[in-house]
């Protein structure tokens, strides 16, 4: 799932080399932490969080297939 987030982020930003993705397992499921260069933040969040929402929707769809609960956080 982290791989999916990394791929999406790298496809959208100007500095793919500065994309950092970490998966943290918790009681509630997996949290995927996404970090990008500060001037790329807008590229993964979008106006009113539209891009972030689309990323989460896609990840959620993929996670359901694997019966996992996944949250994506942009930090």
């Amino acid at each position: 799932m982290a791989e999916l987030v990394e791929f999406l982020a790298k496809s959208l930003v100007d500095h793919p080399d500065q994309v950092d993705v970490r998966a943290v397992e918790g009681n509630e499921g997996i949290t995927i932490e996404l970090r990008v260069a500060s001037d790329d933040m807008g590229k993964v969040i979008g106006k009113q969080g539209r891009i972030a929402r689309a990323i989460r929707t896609v990840v959620k769809a993929a996670a359901v297939r694997e019966n996992k609960k996944v949250a994506v956080e942009i930090v």
Partner: peptide, 24 residues
């Protein structure tokens, strides 16, 4: 069905992301 999602929600998200990547 997985690609479409609830009321086409996933399909719209995939379409939006593809549009961003294509128009970058």
């Amino acid at each position: 069905g997985v690609l479409i999602g609830h009321r086409g929600e996933t399909l719209d998200a995939v379409q939006y992301l593809t549009s961003l990547v294509v128009n970058r």
